[in-house]
């Protein structure tokens, strides 16, 4: 690259930075969160209330839990709002987040084709269902993207006593994409897939899919929120970010979460007061 080009690039970057600084004058924070919260429509419901109350714009970047935590680790978000408790605790213990607050839970459900090749429909035992899927070699779609849902899925295989890395066969397909893409794939190939209820309820391309297993306690999916450590990244908007966290766990925020429904069905259950969650 020529000297001139490099200079032009730097000048252009500076000009853009100047322009975006002007925009950044208003109050806004970046929240790295998960595709499941975004795709479920929860943010569309609660963020306008938060904005009305505080005047703060919340910009949600929806990623897999692993990528969202990495975004926080790099200092590119002010708040991280995800669902993979062990990974969150590691994030805090490494000093990237200040403190983890439990916010709410929803639940995972096992989605499968109406033909139900594994014969598990209506079961409340996810472990038995997964064992049946493996025994029958029924098609199963895995997110395979290190997301919270993916990690929950891997954990469930482990509980079922199946070493999926070793035992997987052609019936087990890792697609390395988000929840919606996994559902689209399952719909197209009539496979089982583990999904969060929120994404499922707002998902429109269901085809022959339906809920196969739900209600098992082991399918509960806890969400936590953390402020990115401003000592690691001085650019973090500490006060605005803390404001958002405080609101989420306040009675007002918790009520807003509980009030979000699709077709009359509640998606997320607030539990900020449960310190062990």
């Amino acid at each position: 690259m020529s000297m001139l080009t490099r200079r032009l690039l730097i000048a252009a970057t500076a000009a853009l930075a100047f322009a975006s600084h002007a925009v950044a004058q208003d109050k806004s924070i970046v929240v790295a969160s998960t595709t499941s919260t975004q795709d479920s429509g929860l943010f569309g419901h609660i963020l306008p209330m938060f904005k009305a109350r505080t005047g703060i714009d919340v910009k949600v970047v929806a990623q897999g839990t692993g990528q969202a935590l990495d975004t926080g680790r790099r200092g590119d978000a002010d708040v991280v709002f995800v669902h993979a408790k062990p990974a969150e605790e590691k994030f805090v213990s490494e000093g990237f987040g200040i403190r983890r607050h439990p916010v709410m839970y929803n639940d995972f459900i096992l989605i499968g084709p109406k033909s139900d090749p594994a014969g598990i429909k209506g079961s409340k035992d996810i472990v038995a269902a997964l064992s049946a899927i493996k025994a029958k070699g029924a098609d199963f779609i895995s997110r395979g993207d290190k997301s919270g849902t993916h990690q929950a899925e891997l954990n469930l295989w482990k509980i079922a006593g199946i070493d999926i890395a070793k035992d997987k066969g052609p019936w087990y397909k890792e697609i390395g994409q988000g929840m919606g893409a996994a559902l689209n794939t399952a719909s197209a190939s009539n496979a089982y897939v583990l999904a969060d209820r929120g994404t499922w309820l707002s998902f429109k391309n269901r085809g022959d899919l339906g809920i196969a297993v739900e209600g098992d306690k082991r399918l509960f999916n806890q969400y936590g929120v953390m402020l990115v450590n401003p000592e690691k990244h001085p650019s973090v908007k500490k006060d605005l970010g803390q404001h958002f966290i405080d609101w989420l766990v306040s009675s007002e925020g918790q009520k807003a979460i509980a009030d979000y429904k699709i077709n009359g069905e509640q998606l997320f259950y607030p539990n900020a007061s449960d310190s062990g969650a």
Binding site: T13, A14, L16, A17, S20, H21, A24, V30, K59, V61, R74, G75, D76, A77, H233, S235
Partner: peptide, 13 residues
Amino acid sequence: SRSGPLGAFGLLF
């Protein structure tokens, strides 16, 4: 990225 060479400009996202 904030952790990258041009992070100081705060341009990501």
